[in-house]
């Protein structure tokens, strides 16, 4: 059915393509922890050799009722619903920063449960809706 020439090209293409897929797969595999934009509190807990001097990013949900704001700093707890991490930050936060919303903090770990951030990024989730609908949903929950 296929010409011999075409058959040859097909096999060349398949070999080339699959070998580059495998190569890229291994590269991504070895880079895995570096590709992660942030670590979750569980990652921090399970990690044995943490470099406390190195800047890292941690992320999770701001725990409900954990946000304390005073003159010097903003304190809150992030959670991935398994483990928690206390965070302290002084500076301005993005508009979308709020309790029960995703957040990414950049800074240094002090110990395994306390983190001092020097930058806060808000993480937006994939939900989009008009404000009226949100009000209705809130009422229904209550």
């Amino acid at each position: 059915m296929l010409q011999k020439k075409v058959k040859k090209r097909v096999s060349l293409l398949v070999v080339l393509f699959s070998s580059s897929v495998i190569a890229i797969f291994f590269i991504l595999q070895s880079l895995n922890s570096n590709i992660l934009y942030f670590k979750s509190p569980t990652d921090i807990k399970n990690n044995q050799d943490i470099n406390f001097k190195k800047k890292i990013r941690v992320g999770g949900m701001v725990k409900k009722n954990s946000l304390i704001i005073n003159e010097q700093e903003i304190k809150f707890i992030i959670t991935d619903f398994n483990n928690e991490l206390k965070i302290s930050f002084s500076g301005t936060v993005p508009n979308l920063f709020a309790e029960e919303k995703g957040v990414v903090a950049e800074g240094k770990l002090q110990d395994k449960s306390f983190f001092i951030a020097d930058r806060i990024l808000a993480k937006h989730d994939e939900n989009y809706m008009p404000p009226e609908l949100k009000d209705i949903m809130k009422k229904n929950v209550k």
Partner: peptide
């Protein structure tokens, strides 16, 4: 910039 608080992030 207005949402996350940064112009650029080296995420995947």
């Amino acid at each position: 910039q207005p949402t996350w608080g940064t112009w650029w992030a080296w995420d995947a």
